[in-house]
Design a binder for these strands. Structure first.
Lengths: 229, 229
DNA sequence: TGCCGTGATCTGTGATCACACTTAGGCTCG
DNA sequence: CGAGCCTAAGTGTGATCACAGATCACGGCA
């Protein structure tokens, strides 16, 4: 939620914030499977602190709906239902599509350069004989958020980060299981269309390309993924 | 963030959750002025608990950007800058506008009845010789969220609640200071257009009416409000 | 009279302890 | 040999204590 301006991070944020970032990254990276249960004390032990920072981190993630607390008061990674996945996808297309439109209007040269760089990195990784999935996913994420940041609306970026936090587990988990189909997904094509539309200042084109990209990856997840009914 | 299904609230949520709800309501209602500082211990004393629940509530509100923690580690209600206010307004028009479009597609008879009921309540309150501002604002909020809920996208409603949480303080604070201009704002007209478009299934019309409503109230705040430069 | 230093107090943060509750395992009894 | 109870370990939640840092006001010195 607060990854903006992470540059100047001098050193000591509060332990709770560090725990939040750590858990958040593991969640987005798909290191925690949906349905997996978490324990405050185990978590704290892993962080080398008391339960307090872990408690705060979990609280915030629960507020973001990136974790859920069962009636038993047990904490776990939410299991994504097919219907809520589709709902999230529709919201993503709307919100991220708007961001793409705005980005096309405001795009600065630096933004375009960054976007093209991430695009190249993703294409290179995905077309390699031995694709590094993790690096590809990171390049994909960097590309998307470079676009969103270019819209110049920080609160919109925060909203989108919240959405990615929720789909992160299921998305990255499934990507990991299927190595080769990443290249067949055709994400490179959508990315190319997106970059071209942005460079041309074509807001509708950018939105369409991004929507197609999101829809394609959602389809991919729906077919290979094990989403709860 | 979790005001949906508040009906079944049997009794005992955790103290932290209760504290969060309480603080959140005070924030949305404008009971806390922007820039006002908060103290965990004072807050806890007001709640009749220890600092722990207050701490959790504040943590979550900070995560929602409804509160902010200064470099001094002091906690206060954020002072809204004019530029961030305009940014939030643009995001609101995009996100809430999308919700209105969806609502026009999916609208159920019950939804329309609820919307018309809140619309009538707002118009009645605002055209009265002695308008009750608080009741008018509540009717306005109920009307808006009845529309958003009709879109059938709970995660979108949660996002919008986060946005309202941030503009709540400045919005309700300014409304309180200017009693009579509420009627002149013409919100009733926008609401009427909105309800008509929704009833006709006109998505674009609903979006336009809602955008006009948001823009008008934003203009009102900008002129009478004391937003930081 | 004006200004600076200094101590008391209040801030959030983290650790530790206490408690109600759930859950899983082992033991006893049929 | 199997099933049921019952204890013990583990859960999140809340309270209390400890601590570093910031704030502010009062008092002494120039």
């Amino acid at each position: 939620m607060e990854s903006i301006a992470r540059i100047g991070r001098v050193a000591h944020a509060t332990l709770g914030a560090q725990a939040y970032e750590a858990l958040r990254d593991r969640l987005i990276a798909g290191a925690l499977a949906p349905g997996e249960r978490l324990s405050l004390r185990t978590l704290a032990e892993g962080l080398g602190t008391s339960v307090m920072p872990a408690r705060e981190a979990v609280s915030r993630l629960v507020a973001d709906e990136a974790l859920e607390v069962l009636p038993n008061r047990a904490v776990r990674v939410p299991v994504m239902t097919l219907s809520t996945f589709r709902e999230l996808t529709r919201v993503r297309i709307a919100v991220e599509g708007f961001a793409a439109t705005e980005a096309a209007r405001r795009l600065a040269p630096d933004d375009l350069a960054a976007i093209r760089s991430h695009d190249a990195a993703f294409r290179h990784e995905v077309l390699a004989p031995e694709p590094d999935l993790e690096r590809a996913m990171r390049a994909n994420r960097d590309l998307h958020f470079a676009v969103y940041r270019a819209a110049g609306l920080p609160s919109l970026v925060a909203i989108i980060e919240g959405l990615w936090l929720r789909i992160g587990p299921v998305l990255n988990l499934d990507m990991r299981s299927s190595r080769r189909r990443v290249a067949e997904g055709g994400a490179q094509v959508h990315h190319a269309h997106l970059a071209a539309a942005l460079a041309a200042g074509d807001g509708d084109g950018a939105r369409a390309a991004l929507a197609a990209d999101i829809a394609a990856s959602a389809d991919f997840i729906e077919t290979t993924g094990r989403l709860a009914p």
